[in-house]
Amino acid sequence: MIRYRAGSIGVLMLLAVPLVAAAGDEVVRIGAWGWILDAPTKVADGAGLFAAGRSEASPERIEVVDVGSGVEAIAALEQGRLDFALAAQAPVARSLLLQAESIRATNPSFVILASLALAPRAHYLIADGSRGIRIPADLEGRRLGILRHSSAHFAWQQFARQHGLDPAGVELVDVTLPDQALALTEGRVDAIVAWDPWSGRLLRELGAKGVVFGMREFYSANWLLLARTQLVDQRPAVADRVLAAYAAALALMDGDRARARGLHAAALGLDPAELAPLEDGVIWQLGLGWSVLSSLEAALDWLAAEPEFAGRPRPRTAPFIDAGPMLRVAPESLALPSYLTRTATR
């Protein structure tokens, strides 16, 4: 199921500006990765939509670069190696907490511009059944491979709580996405929390031994577009251009699903037929509304209970949400009042 809502008139106007040569050919970088939710980035890049809005106001060349996860993307954004990034709410909330005690609490290193997708079926806990794991209780005393501080880490905590598991009774092992399959098959971990499309590859490798526990009842991922605060403040035309390209990509995904899926599949190295079932339940939709706030607050609740953040002040989310680009590009997709965004704090 795909739903789309965006300001098509504003988007078309932004993307219709004639192409001009860039002074110095400056590059603006967007960090993307292979999670199924990042389809809009792959479609926008493959269809040339980032380049289509190049103009005198925004002459920069936009380049999509690969990162390993949302956690890595946020780190690169904060270090200035990226200008835009995509991540789910858990690593975003963690960064908000880390910035809460510094001056960046009112002048953050990055801001949230939009939500691009919602997915209740975002993660899976995959175990090797040959090791005696058949029900959630069998995870007690086992080693679970997980990317720490990621949305998968957040999903695991919700899963454990709902099944009455003591998180302290499961050893968490930090495992990067490329290393997940090897960690499980080599016995370094007994189970993994994975995303699509990696979950499918992992299950194919395990064959009949694979056991899957769904997490859709406990957690929904909110796919957020982030940008460096300095760029948004000093070069608003670039922020508008990127947001317009995403809106156009979502329109393409809604209007020509076969072409959009082909672009996405090519970027992931998959057959389009393999991609189709992975999209089930994902709602790709441009917006900046209450789902962004509620997902961030839920992630902050989780992090507040973690020893790493004991005693830390809880950040206000308003300074981290910039509604300016959405207001200019697709105002009908903006549902938050100004007092809950940077408009009221600058």
Score class of each variant (00 low, 15 high):
105 A>L: 13
342 R>H: 05
313 P>Q: 07
303 L>V: 04
95 S>T: 06
189 V>G: 06
54 R>F: 01
215 M>I: 01
7 G>H: 12
35 W>R: 05
36 I>Q: 02
43 V>A: 05
315 P>H: 07
304 A>W: 03
52 A>L: 09
248 A>H: 15
105 A>I: 00
256 D>E: 14
278 L>C: 14
75 A>F: 03
182 L>N: 06
43 V>S: 06
120 P>V: 13
304 A>N: 01
60 E>P: 11
24 G>P: 10
65 V>E: 12
209 K>F: 00
5 R>H: 09
8 S>M: 08
204 R>W: 05
11 V>Y: 04
198 W>A: 11
23 A>F: 14
245 A>P: 06
12 L>D: 09
25 D>E: 08
216 R>L: 12
235 R>S: 01
311 G>H: 01
84 F>M: 05
310 A>P: 13
154 F>V: 01
7 G>R: 13
13 M>F: 09
210 G>A: 02
43 V>N: 06
175 V>H: 13
325 P>T: 04
57 A>Q: 13
193 V>R: 02
181 A>S: 07
33 W>H: 06
119 A>R: 05
207 G>A: 11
140 E>F: 08
309 F>Y: 10
23 A>K: 15
13 M>Y: 05
324 G>D: 02
87 A>G: 11
283 I>G: 03
184 L>Q: 01
316 R>M: 13
41 T>W: 10
267 A>I: 14
49 L>N: 15
167 P>Q: 08
143 R>Q: 12
230 Q>T: 00
7 G>D: 14
105 A>E: 01
184 L>Y: 10
71 V>P: 04
111 V>I: 03
186 E>G: 08
287 G>A: 11
296 L>R: 06
211 V>N: 00
109 S>C: 00
68 G>V: 14
112 I>W: 02
343 T>D: 15
332 E>N: 15
282 V>T: 05
238 V>D: 01
115 S>I: 10
208 A>Q: 10
95 S>Q: 02
211 V>T: 04
138 D>Q: 06
242 V>T: 00
277 P>W: 03
165 L>A: 07
